[in-house]
Amino acid sequence: MEAPLNPTISRTHLFFLIIKTQIGIGLLSLPSKIQESAKGDAWISVLVAGVVIQLLLLVYWQLLNKFPNQTLSEMTVRILGVYVGKALNLIYYVFFIVIAGYACTLYVKLVNTWMLALTPSWVLLLLIIGAGVYLAIENLRIISRFFILCSVLFALLLLISFLNFSNDMQFTNILPVGQAGSWQIFKGSENTFFSMLGFEVILYFSAHVQNNPKGLLRVISLANGFVTLFYTYFVFLCLIGFSPIALAQVNEPVLFIFKGLTYQLFDRLDLIFLTIWIIPMTVTIVSYLTLAGKSLTTNQISYRRMIGFSGGLIFLLASYLSALENFDIFSKWLEYGYLFMIVVIPFLLWIMSFLLKKNRKVKST
Score class of each variant (00 low, 15 high):
Ser182Cys: 02
Phe16Asn: 01
Asp41Asn: 11
Ser37Thr: 14
Asp41Gly: 09
Trp350Leu: 12
Lys361Val: 14
Asn299Ser: 13
Thr290Ser: 07
Ile142Gln: 09
Trp122Cys: 02
Pro244Leu: 13
Leu159Ser: 12
Gly188Asn: 10
Lys357Phe: 09
Asn65Glu: 15
Thr8Val: 08
Ile53His: 04
Phe186Gln: 04
Ala49Arg: 03
Leu291Gln: 00
Ser195Ile: 07
Gln35Val: 14
Ala131Pro: 01
Ser10Ala: 03
Phe347Tyr: 13
Trp350Glu: 02
Leu118Cys: 00
Ala100Ile: 05
Phe96Gly: 01
Pro346Cys: 10
Ser243Ile: 09
Asn167Ala: 10
Pro213Gln: 13
Val235Asn: 11
Gln184Arg: 14
Phe327Tyr: 14
Asp267Tyr: 06
Gly81Tyr: 08
Val283Gln: 03
Tyr134His: 13
Ile301Asp: 11
Gln184Leu: 15
Ser221Leu: 06
Ser189Glu: 12
Asp328Phe: 08
Leu348Ala: 14
Val286Trp: 01
Arg305Met: 08
Gln170Asp: 13
Leu153Lys: 04
Tyr102Arg: 14
Thr275Lys: 04
Gly215His: 03
Leu149Trp: 13
Ser166Ala: 12
Tyr107His: 08
Val343Phe: 15
Lys294Cys: 02
Gln54Asn: 10
Pro68Lys: 07
Tyr288His: 06
Val152Leu: 15
Phe96Pro: 01
Gly188Asp: 10
Leu124Phe: 08
Met115Cys: 10
Leu197Cys: 03
Leu265Trp: 11
Lys332Ala: 11
Thr71Phe: 02
Gln300Asn: 08
Gln62Leu: 14
Phe273Lys: 04
Ala323Thr: 08
Gln54Trp: 01
Val227Asp: 01
Phe16Tyr: 13
Met169Lys: 11
Leu90Phe: 15
Ala3Trp: 02
Ser302Phe: 03
Phe236Gly: 09
Lys33Asn: 11
Ile279Asn: 02
Tyr60Cys: 00
Ser45Ile: 09
Ser161Glu: 08
Ala103Ser: 11
Ile128Arg: 03
Met281Asp: 00
Ser287Phe: 01
Ala246Asp: 14
Thr298Cys: 00
Thr105Asn: 13
Ile174Cys: 05
Gln210Arg: 10
Glu36Asp: 07
Gln184Trp: 05
Leu334Pro: 02
Leu118His: 10
Ile278Cys: 06
